[in-house]
Nucleic acid binder design. Sequence first.
DNA 1: ACTCTATTCAAACGATCGTTTGAATGAAAG
DNA 2: CTTTCATTCAAACGATCGTTTGAATAGAGT
Lengths: 213, 213
Amino acid sequence: MSTPAISKTGTADTREKILDAAELLLIEHGFAATSLRAIAAKAEVNLAATHYHFGSKNGLLAAVFHRRIQPLNELRLEALEKLEKSGSPLTVRSILESFFLPFQNPDVISTIPALVGRLHGEPESISKPILEEEFLEVAGRFQEALMKVLPHVDRTDLHWRFHFMIGSMIQILRIQSPMGIDSTPESFSRGIERLVDFCIAGLEQADLGKQHD
Amino acid sequence: MSTPAISKTGTADTREKILDAAELLLIEHGFAATSLRAIAAKAEVNLAATHYHFGSKNGLLAAVFHRRIQPLNELRLEALEKLEKSGSPLTVRSILESFFLPFQNPDVISTIPALVGRLHGEPESISKPILEEEFLEVAGRFQEALMKVLPHVDRTDLHWRFHFMIGSMIQILRIQSPMGIDSTPESFSRGIERLVDFCIAGLEQADLGKQHD
DNA sequence: ACTCTATTCAAACGATCGTTTGAATGAAAG
DNA sequence: CTTTCATTCAAACGATCGTTTGAATAGAGT
């Protein structure tokens, strides 16, 4: 059976309980190392409920990420469109803030950063379909915007720099840091600010520090 | 039993065959999704040989990474020490090149980039012990060198920027590694060059593009 | 009242997992 | 040759995996 319609009863929260439990376990242990039994136990639901509501483990995985990434992307696109319609000229900074600041939006669940960070670390067979489904459109939109404010950077260069930016983002999104950075909400917000500064410099590349041989 | 001594026979390559097979499967599917049976089958050795030579799956994992990362770090430290003893003043560029260029050293096996990229994506319980064991010293050495050539950047800022640099590195190691589908060694080398440029700008942050509100 | 349908539940399916065992193998040492 | 010991091998251990089944439950519609 495919995903059932909205429950007739008032207690349709089984789906949400499964998603919540799966999300936390995915963040902590990754996809392959998280079992449906562990998810069902943490959610305090029957094991078969995971298949009833999501069809398969992969279906549950897609639902976990979609639930969180969809609102995040909406915030990102709203911020970008608000920028473009404001009349004032766009800057690299304003574009990057539209992209990164939604991570610390109070309406955004605090698990999103770790969840997105984890997603990028999964094997390609798992991450690629979800990344393409959830991020392709938004990434394209922001690259277009960046091209407009960086006319001196050609398409290929910008593509690479955008990738480096995503890599820097993923690094801070991971809760744990091999090099040892504490992870309070304040330090996370400060980290996002530093991320913006780092990526602005990398995207613009003022050609000042260069001293080629 | 712990790891046995060097084989008395000439055919001590069982260990190497297991490491080779494990390396390729780890890169492709990740740690949790790679079984010892798949490794033994690909290596064409008996299943029990994996436990005989490495004690456990985790022991094999550590051996896989250590075999590759140890020479990489030696190249990195050699390049840095050569720089420091050359007499000529260090630059951010020369330091970063000492750090990144070993990835395209001809003596370095082509699987290293993808392997390191994969390692950083594994759950903390797997990646943290290995990252600390293999990268802590080298990361510290290069951060010290960068502090000397970036005296205007305080310790905390440099720590973050180094972190972002590692993130950018991981991104290209995962996406554009020599193991990748549509990536040539040339495009990988070109990517490393772009990575250096991106990180130089991010580390120095010339404060020119800034236009704070 | 009865029917229908959505949901939950305990139980089991076959498959695969990491690990262990104990015997077979074979080259080196006495 | 005999002994020794590192190594390889087939086989099995118990545990856990994703998935399926069929009955039990209960609210909504007629």
